[in-house]
C-alpha cells in the first residue's frame, strides 16, 4: 500500500452528473461545503460512500464522485449499517432529510444512532416535504398550513437533536446552509468523530417553505436568535455580545451581561460531558424564547458497533481457531453406514 496522501480539491469530488435541485435551494451550499471539507481529509475518494434514502436531499450521492447508493425511503441508515459492518475501512456518510430520517425512517435512525456505528448522518431539515411538493413534515411547526394541512398542522413537531440525544448519540451538532464557514467546520468535526455523528443542517426550501429559517439567517436579527456554542466557553450572544444563557436550577434563562452578571455566571458549554443532560438542555432551546445553539452540542467517545462486531470475529478466531468446515460437519453425534 502506498502511504502517499492524495492531494484533492473540491472539484475532484464532483461527479459527471448535472445537479438538479431547484435554483436557490439550500442543498447547493451543503454540497459545496461537503466537497470542500472532504478534499482536506486525506482520504481517497474510493474509500468514501454516500448513502441516501428518498427526498430532495437524497439525490446528493449522484453528485459526488465517490461510491454511492441512492436507496429507498428512510432506509439509508440500515443500508449504511450493513455496509460499514462488513467494510469498516470505508468512510460512510448518510444523507437524509426531516421526512426521510424522522418520519418513514425514524426507526432506523434511532437504532443506528444507539449502536454508534462509525458513520456520519447529515440530516437536511427544511421542515417540509419538497420532493412530493409541499406537505408538512415531522419538523413542521404546529399550525403549519400546507397542501395536506389546509387548516394547519395539528401534530407536535419533532426536534432532531433532542431525538438524537435521546438515542444515546455520541456526536450531535447543528449548522445552517448559508453559514458556510460554520457548516464546513461542523461537517469536518462530524467526519473526524469516531462513532455515529449526527448533524442537523437548517436548509431553506425556497419553493415550498421559503424563509423557514429567516430568523436564524437574517443578518439584522441572527445575532439575537442563534448562539454559536464552543467547548469550555460561556454561552454569549447578541449583536453586542451582551447577552448570555444562565442556568436557573434546571432551566436556562436569557440574562443581560454587565452589571451584576459576569461571564463566569453563565452556562459554560462542555461538549465532552458524559451525561447528555446539558446537550439535551441545549437542544431544547428554541426560537423565539431562546437563541438556538449552533455548533457541536455533544462529542463523546464510546465503543463503536462496527469495531465491536469485528472484534468478536477476531476474539472468536483467537479462542476457537479459524473455522474448519469439515471438522464442524463431523462434530457431535455421527454414524457411519458401510
Amino acid at each position: 500500500m502506498s502511504t502517499e496522501l492524495p492531494v484533492l480539491t473540491a472539484n475532484d469530488f464532483a461527479s459527471d452528473q448535472d445537479v438538479r435541485w431547484c435554483p436557490g435551494c439550500g442543498d447547493y451550499s451543503i454540497l459545496a461545503q461537503m466537497k470542500k471539507m472532504l478534499a482536506t481529509l486525506s482520504i481517497p475518494r474510493e474509500k468514501m460512500v454516500f448513502v441516501s434514502g428518498i427526498g430532495c436531499s437524497s439525490r446528493f450521492p449522484y453528485y459526488m464522485n465517490t461510491y454511492g447508493i441512492h436507496s429507498i425511503h428512510g432506509r439509508a441508515p440500515a443500508v449504511a449499517t450493513g455496509l460499514k459492518s462488513v467494510r469498516p475501512d470505508l468512510t460512510v456518510f448518510v444523507i437524509t432529510g426531516d421526512g426521510d430520517g424522522l418520519s418513514i425512517g425514524g426507526n432506523h435512525l434511532m437504532h443506528t444512532i444507539r449502536r454508534n456505528l462509525d458513520i456520519n448522518i447529515i440530516l437536511f431539515n427544511n421542515r417540509i416535504y419538497g420532493l412530493t411538493k409541499g406537505q408538512y413534515s415531522p419538523t413542521s411547526p404546529k399550525g403549519k398550513v400546507t397542501k395536506s394541512t389546509p387548516m394547519g398542522a395539528i401534530d407536535n413537531p419533532l426536534h432532531p437533536l433532542s431525538i438524537a440525544i435521546g438515542c444515546e448519540a455520541t456526536f450531535v451538532a447543528r449548522s445552517i446552509d448559508v453559514h458556510i464557514k460554520h457548516l464546513e467546520m461542523v461537517l469536518r468535526r462530524a467526519a473526524e468523530h469516531r462513532g455515529t455523528s449526527f448533524v442537523e443542517v437548517y436548509q431553506n426550501c425556497n419553493v415550498f417553505n421559503d424563509g423557514a429559517f429567516d430568523y436564524a439567517t437574517d443578518r439584522k436579527i441572527k445575532d439575537d436568535t442563534i448562539v454559536e456554542i464552543e467547548h469550555n466557553k460561556p454561552l454569549i450572544f447578541g449583536k453586542n455580545r451582551d447577552k448570555g444563557i444562565r442556568l436557573n436550577g434546571l432551566e436556562p434563562e436569557v440574562v443581560q451581561l454587565g452589571g451584576a452578571i459576569k461571564e463566569d455566571d453563565l452556562l459554560f458549554h462542555n461538549e465532552l460531558a458524559e451525561e447528555p443532560s446539558l446537550a439535551y438542555l441545549l437542544s431544547r432551546m428554541r426560537h423565539p424564547e431562546f437563541p438556538e445553539p449552533m455548533g457541536v452540542l455533544r462529542a463523546v467517545d464510546r465503543p463503536r458497533y462496527d469495531d465491536e462486531l469485528n472484534k468478536q470475529i477476531t476474539v472468536a478466531r483467537e479462542q476457537r481457531g479459524d473455522g474448519d468446515m469439515n471438522a464442524l460437519f463431523r462434530s457431535g453425534e455421527t454414524w457411519t453406514v458401510s
Binding site: V49, V51, Y67, I69, S71, I72, R75, A78, V79, A80, T81, G82, L83, K84, S85, V86, R87, L90, N107, H108, M110, H111, L309, N310, I313
Partner: peptide
C-alpha cells in the same frame, strides 16, 4: 457476521449495504 436488525426492513436493507460492500 450476524446483525439482529431493528426490523425486517432494516434486515434486508442492511443486507443490500453489505452486498454493495462485497
Amino acid at each position: 457476521r450476524t446483525f439482529q436488525a431493528e426490523d425486517e426492513i432494516a434486515a434486508i436493507t442492511a443486507t443490500i449495504g453489505a452486498a454493495f460492500g462485497g
